Simulated scan of single mutants.
Amino acid sequence: MAMAVGDSVRRILERGVAEGAFPGAYAVVGTRAGIIAEYGAGQLDQNDPTRPTNRTVWDLASLTKVIGTTSAMLQLVGSGRVALDTPVVRYLPEWRAPGAERVTVRHLLTHAAGLPAWRALYKEAGDRSEAVRQVFATSPDTLPGMRMVYSDLGFILLGQLVERVSTESLDAYDVRHVFAPLGMQETRYLPPASWRARTAPTEVDPWRNRHLRGEVHDENAAMLGGVSGHAGLFSTAHDLARFARMYLNGGVLDGVRVFDSSTVATFTRAQQPALSHRALGWETPNTRNSAGSQLSPSAFGHTGFTGTSIWMDPERDLFVLLLTNRVNPTRQSTGIGGIRTALADAVAKALAPAAGAGR
């Protein structure tokens, strides 16, 4: 069975390289107990023939929202320091934009705050403090709880909330309370120069006029100093496999508990199924997203703009991790969507005899 999974992973990743979906990729499939199959395909860059390994460093893009920010929020909620249905302005009183007082923490985590999806902070602001002020000046344009609009701005606010409640910077909080306890020594914001050679380059960036390698691809995260609630994390397949196994174990790995199991259950369950498939930070399968069509209703996951994705399925005891640099050399490459769903479906089908029946 492991051979069938490995064959499926290899076939799909090699197809992605051949079709130009990405220069390089690394995928890991596993359970709470360990890894079933992993494979690296392609190369890091047109000018760097290095084949990706489980120690290749990738720009996670919006996986930051769930690996970094949601992890911190899960801990703060689990310990009672943050309440999901409390207005955000109780924690961030400087968010004084009209309508902000109606937005709760749950609204932000489910992308139901009514906030715009995005604004070009990197063009509007000259430095981090000004960019943060621009976010605090942003009003909801819809009543909270009425619709789901995936919003980077909401997660920038959540990053600010983590810092305010914990009195630690977001990057320091995540390292101290999540990554270090899990042995994730290669997961951090602002990766050191010593990691650059094994970091997958991303885009030839028209704003910064250079090929990005080891600095965050997301322009707003760059304006925010490389540390933000919506983007900025870098990591390896080795570390993220440990993170996924911890979630499948209900918040504990190798005897170290980082999350409360009941809070994990709350955060990974769709909150308002009539409104959207969003859990708290996470998304859940809806037959149209990167989960594909075979994972169980209890699955949860997320994607990142640079070509990253992670899905975990407690019912099947399965995780599927895909790390690519599909924005290299340009973000116009769009083949990643088909590869994500093909990988999830192929893995689930290969494991079907041993796992619970899919949907």
Rank of each mutant, 00 (worst) to 15 (best):
A137H: 11
W311G: 01
T303G: 00
T266P: 02
H238E: 15
A350K: 04
G80H: 11
Y26N: 07
T69P: 05
P93E: 13
R55M: 12
P314T: 05
G16W: 02
V105A: 08
H277V: 07
S166R: 08
R147A: 13
W58G: 03
L233W: 00
S151N: 08
V264H: 04
D171R: 11
H302M: 03
T64R: 01
P140H: 13
R32A: 14
R257P: 12
G229D: 03
P353C: 08
Q271S: 11
T284F: 02
A291E: 04
Y39H: 15
S79M: 09
E130L: 06
V88D: 10
V252C: 12
Q272E: 15
R242D: 11
R119I: 07
G232F: 03
N286V: 01
E130P: 06
P201A: 05
A299M: 10
A222F: 13
V252R: 13
N249W: 07
E14I: 07
P201M: 00
Y91F: 11
S79N: 15
S262N: 14
E315L: 14
M146H: 12
Q185A: 15
R106M: 09
G307N: 10
L121F: 00
S309T: 01
R326Y: 08
R210G: 02
G34M: 10
V320G: 02
D152T: 03
P314A: 05
N328H: 06
R196V: 15
V9M: 07
A125F: 05
T303L: 01
Q294S: 13
G24K: 04
T330A: 07
Q43I: 09
